[in-house]
């Protein structure tokens, strides 16, 4: 298959679904069905989206929201990888901490919003909520990956008397990297969810904030426009991360990368 047919294959159902949606909503609108107010045609959503996304809202709401999300996710990633490697290579750390981490991870991250609202206030709680929610998949996956360095590599490293830095950054980190990326992808979707949720509950700005405003103003088309934006952002970030992952893991035989992407849900 060439590039064109692959791209066509990937998008044909999507485009068809949007076209069908357009058709159905247009017909509903023409027939005067009551529900059609809540289900505007995609073309209308697209026009509204163009006005909303590229207006002053871009700097006032989209940039701060996305900034918090990416910043929180990046911080969670750095902390998660650093501690994950440390704990994964420690002989006893996870025996003590494993249960604690699994408990903390099991708390549905959105439930942290009320806590952080109470603890640091509505204007400041988005960032810590995202960091705290997004850290667990990276941390636990990195621990798993760091632990998984096989015995032969451990012995090889000892025989060649690798320095501590060489061992950590040159052997453990690359060994763990496939799992690290799996964790980062999970964390990214959690970060996106937490960004919106935390902004829905209370925030001076952000995409969630605008979504709630559109709801209060009874503007379903604007709501849809913000919802679509979240979908676009999620898709975009995941695509970029996948591309980064492919580059970073280029040393892996191709097929194993794809099965991994499937196994972790892309």
């Amino acid at each position: 298959m060439n590039r064109f047919t692959r791209t066509a294959q990937r998008w044909v159902v999507f485009v068809a679904a949007v076209a069908l949606w357009e058709l159905v909503t247009q017909l509903a609108e023409a027939s005067g069905a009551a529900m059609s107010f809540f289900f505007p045609p995609p073309s209308e959503i697209a026009l509204t989206a163009k006005d909303l996304w590229f207006s002053s809202a871009f700097g006032k709401h989209i940039v701060p929201g996305v900034g918090r999300m990416l910043g929180g996710w990046a911080l969670a990633g750095v902390i998660g990888v650093a501690f994950g490697i440390l704990l994964g290579r420690s002989r006893h750390a996870m025996a003590y901490l494993g249960a604690v981490f699994n408990f903390l991870r099991s708390i549905p991250p959105p439930l942290l919003v009320p806590f952080f609202v109470a603890a640091v206030g509505t204007t400041n709680m988005q960032f810590p909520t995202i960091v705290f929610g997004a850290i667990w998949p990276v941390l636990l996956n990195t621990v798993d990956g760091a632990r998984g360095v096989d015995a032969t590599k451990v012995e090889t490293a000892r025989v060649f008397r690798l320095s501590r830095t060489q061992w950590t950054l040159g052997v453990v980190l690359p060994s763990a990297l496939p799992k690290v990326f799996a964790g980062l992808r999970l964390s990214l979707s959690i970060a996106l969810i937490l960004m919106v949720i935390s902004e829905l509950v209370g925030s001076a700005n952000g995409i969630g904030n605008q979504l709630v405003r559109a709801q209060r103003d009874y503007e379903p088309t604007a709501m849809w426009a913000w919802i679509v934006l979240l979908g676009v952002l999620g898709y975009l970030f995941n695509t970029v991360l996948l591309a980064l992952e492919r580059r970073a893991l280029a040393w892996q035989p191709r097929h194993s990368l794809e099965t991994q992407a499937l196994a972790t849900g892309g």
Binding site: T156, G170, P174
Partner: peptide
């Protein structure tokens, strides 16, 4: 076990 002894990312 050469496949494990070598570093596949290098």
């Amino acid at each position: 076990d050469y496949s494990r002894s070598l570093f596949p990312w290098l």
